[in-house]
Design a protein around this nucleic acid. Structure first.
Lengths: 231, 231
DNA sequence: TTAATATTGTGAAATTGTTCACAAGTTTGA
DNA sequence: TCAAACTTGTGAACAATTTCACAATATTAA
């Protein structure tokens, strides 16, 4: 920290590195928000942006924006703000969006099909390369240009195609078994849409999207409206 | 909450009431988790359950389970644990799952169609009553048994059918305009699937499911693996 | 050049959330 | 009945996160 001022002209180490790399989950989530905000500002022709304006994009405070960014380095200029294009690129690099990832999707049902068509994924470098299902009527056919394989061959195909990331869109009852196969193939990142709790080893990152849980949150708010809840 | 008051004769008022009703977002999320865990335990025939066993269902500590529940009252018996059936019902009431909600869904595209077929929703009392789209080929047709209306009539139809909750599955570019209509119809809860930031008044609860954001989180973990991240 | 204004980066303070530790109450078995 | 074993509910300690507040620095205008 001490070196921040002195080294103003040199490339300096990030706070994240200096402090042992502890970045909170919330900070990462907000980084995604900043990324989207910066994309908008860039499109609108802004060259620089202040933490104040960036904060408006979410419901955040300028101090929080600055604190978050300071974990990764000091990207701004006092009196002026942050350079939109460069900050966007920095965040892209931090989030791993400056490259492509090989993605496989298991379960070509309703949710799975919707995800295959979801245009945000390829836009951000997430390319769905393989599909898997256990339904013989779907196996070995093409689904929107991507071949569907038998889920029995999951582990071998994941390795063969160097898949980085697997999306699970299978029924809750099948989720753990499929996950175990995915883990055995050495994949370290899983996005789960099955409405159930899944166990993975510590070195595997799992994120779950549970739409029923989101609705429950809303219904809680409806039932408890009038109370001064903090969210 | 109303039932809490009634019980005040023999049981203490809930912490939530005593402390002014401040329940954190994380607590609500964990309540959903407990609910699912309790459903499992009930199915397996358990009559009572300890905070220890309930904690295993998520990756939580027994103390946290007890603290969370204590916000709403004291439901357990020392030495024995919590009565599975009753606790499940209590949480259902807290989360508003002991009743049904009228839901409308705007945007019958890929994501919207998948959501219409999502079986968890009706299971938990979320009944999709109306669909809306701006595509003339879809309007006035049935989609999986539910009629599709013109999004132009959104506000009037929402009021007419006493819709509690709206799910947005429209493109990012349309999200804010549709939201403004929804808000003008007096709906207080919105679940947004459009990958964009939406502004709502303070008395409207908005939750967003952003699948690209979840993938970004995973790619961050992939890029930064090796760092001692805390999540 | 100077003054007024803007804005970052960051310790410190405040707030919020989690875990600990144990008194109090319940059950079980002898 | 009693003692041993459990388990809740909760104040207090601890940890994490957010906000505050301001020195440092850049920009703008005269």
């Amino acid at each position: 920290m001490r070196s921040m001022v002195r080294q103003a002209h040199h490339k300096k180490e990030s706070h994240a590195r200096l402090t042992g790399g502890r970045v909170s989950e919330s900070t990462v989530r907000r980084l995604s928000l900043y990324y989207r905000g910066l994309s908008t500002f860039e499109r609108e022709g802004y060259k620089t942006i202040s933490s104040k304006d960036l904060a408006k994009e979410g419901r955040l405070t300028p101090a929080q924006v600055r604190k978050d960014l300071s974990f990764f380095g000091s990207f701004g200029t006092r009196g002026l703000g942050y350079p939109v294009k460069e900050l966007k690129e920095k965040i892209a690099r931090i989030l791993g969006l400056n490259r492509t990832w090989n993605v496989a999707l298991v379960g070509v049902g309703n949710v799975g099909s919707a995800l295959v068509s979801y245009k945000e994924f390829p836009k951000q470098g997430f390319n769905i390369k393989l599909l898997f299902d256990n339904d013989q009527r779907k196996i070995n056919k093409n689904h929107k240009g991507i071949q569907v394989f038998d889920v029995k061959d999951l582990a071998s195909k994941l390795k063969e195609h160097k898949i980085d990331l697997v999306i699970l869109a299978v029924p809750a009852s099948a989720a753990q078994a499929v996950t175990d196969d995915v883990v055995s193939a050495g994949v370290k990142s899983i996005l789960n849409f099955a409405p159930t709790h899944i166990k993975v080893p510590d070195d595997v990152t799992l994120r779950s999207v549970n739409m029923a849980m989101e609705l429950e949150h809303l219904s809680f708010s409806l039932v408890n409206k009038g109370y001064p809840l903090k969210f």
